[in-house]
Write a protein that binds this DNA or RNA. Sequence first.
DNA 1: CTGTTAGCGCGTTCAT
DNA 2: ATGAACGCGCTAACAG
Lengths: 342, 342
Amino acid sequence: MGKKRETITIYDVAREAGVSMATVSRVVNGNPNVKPVTRKKVLETIRQMGYRPNAVARGLASKRTTTVGVVIPDISYAFFAELTRGIEDIANMYHYNIMLCNSDLQKDKELQLTEALLEKQVDGLLFLGGEVTQEHREIFAGAQVPIVLAATFDEVEKSRPYVTIDQVGAAKEATQVLIQEGHERIGLLGGPLTDPIIGYPRYQGYKEALAEEGIAFNDQWVRLGNYRYDSGLEAAKELLAMEDAPTAIFAVNDEMAVGAIHAAQDQGLKVPDDVSVIGFDNTPLASQVRPLLSTVSVPMYDIGAVAMRLLTKYMNDETIEENEVVLPHRLRLADSTRLKEE
Amino acid sequence: MGKKRETITIYDVAREAGVSMATVSRVVNGNPNVKPVTRKKVLETIRQMGYRPNAVARGLASKRTTTVGVVIPDISYAFFAELTRGIEDIANMYHYNIMLCNSDLQKDKELQLTEALLEKQVDGLLFLGGEVTQEHREIFAGAQVPIVLAATFDEVEKSRPYVTIDQVGAAKEATQVLIQEGHERIGLLGGPLTDPIIGYPRYQGYKEALAEEGIAFNDQWVRLGNYRYDSGLEAAKELLAMEDAPTAIFAVNDEMAVGAIHAAQDQGLKVPDDVSVIGFDNTPLASQVRPLLSTVSVPMYDIGAVAMRLLTKYMNDETIEENEVVLPHRLRLADSTRLKEE
DNA sequence: CTGTTAGCGCGTTCAT
DNA sequence: ATGAACGCGCTAACAG
């Protein structure tokens, strides 16, 4: 396993190349103040000796690790996976490495991971998706480095930079699609209402749409799940088995929406003829189902990319013109609803 | 953003608490050799001052970072996402942090990321999914820390520890399912044959199954994709439009298999009545389609968990009894094929 | 149980 | 253009 080889340091290289370690440091870091001949010689002995710079030592000396921490609820959700791609691409562009940590949306784990990341001296932190509580605020406040929120925001301390979308508005539009189709019995497959980032706002948007059209709100038609396929399948099954079953369903994310489609189909109902279904997020899954799922297209990649870009600005002390970014969403009407895109 | 506060060190805490920095270090690291009273006092001033240990300095001094690097092809593939969960859970258990890096299966990026992780002095490295070339071997050999392969292996330097499954055997079994159903015109949706980890072995298993049953191999029925849904959809569409279209399709992963199901359905064919489809991996998608996809259940989580556990053994210099692990797979027959589980 | 003292490997003045 | 020397914040002997 190639262990135990004595570590070779910048000092060894210096001695071997007949220069000082300062010079080696300069060539390693691309400092131009080195005579080309010297540089060449140093580079050569570096190669020969197989010298590998120690980023930890460098981090300690320079107080920069060129690493940013990312606290993410669950990478196995397509939504966050795609968001992460946006983060990564921008991070690469600016030569930062990423430390990705799954929090499972558990507050304790979020806090602990954030702490760990800060201890590791990341140059900045991206916090994704969860609720920002008072405890979060305290840790964030104690950080010496910039922190940007992505796909979430701080309801209290509004100054904390963030990148997200208009959850309420988007949910409202999705519901309106169903209303415009003529439905009056519209079910909701929601998330936990205690979730202030996704669950509650999208529920809110649903209610607002109904209220605006003077459609009575019926909490029998509201089922709360955990954003996963199975919970959508089960909840929709119940919904569709009701006496006065809804004729349309708004699921607050695509996984649950696809569950709803299958629940309908399993009961012999046709989508969208017998029941319309609309989802949210426009994850790949929306295009991997029959009928193709109508949904709200959320710029997942862009949320990540913009958040990361914003973070780099903070890390480089660039001037920030806008630190609260609400990215646009749009409807993506496909075959699980009857209305088509204009 | 809480920047620029002068960093408070272990030394500050020591002064404030009226002890030496060694003592502070001890309580921070849970060393039992500290009088409870002293410990309490130190803990108290740590809390008061909001001291946060610097993991970089610790890493330099102790030569351990309690961080392991993970090079992964693409976290947005369900397969690798699930595998990552296994890695994470075990890493948490042993109090390691994870540095996750996407390589996009690009060799250059793999090499560069591996280098970067080693420079950051990770205590160990997990390399997932890609081909191990000579260049990989050279970098791996130059590492001072253990490296374990997961969901791949080194064809040449067999001594490199790995955790994977029997790709050829599993692919063979999947194909045999279709043969046992009575099919003789069996299509393959494969991956790149230049991919020695997935694409080629699963193709190999397909061929072996046919050969064993004396069924003629017809390369017209072999289509190579990129493991993604769309490529499966397109390839299957072509396959099913042929004069002598196959009556069954083996897709080397679930995404392509679901694409195949939809290709069939889009052409008015019934699965499995008109055409049988079997996939590979048993990702969540296999359960999120109608009909439910028959597939090969691969212990993704376990591959990650076992690989990580193996790595911890190396990192702790435990004795290793088995460094080449082939985990069992099993068939998971559902509704996209006609044969049922016995 | 506690304190002192060396480094860990490198970046960074400040001279030269 | 190059080198000497200091210090980043902490752990790890070694004393006591």
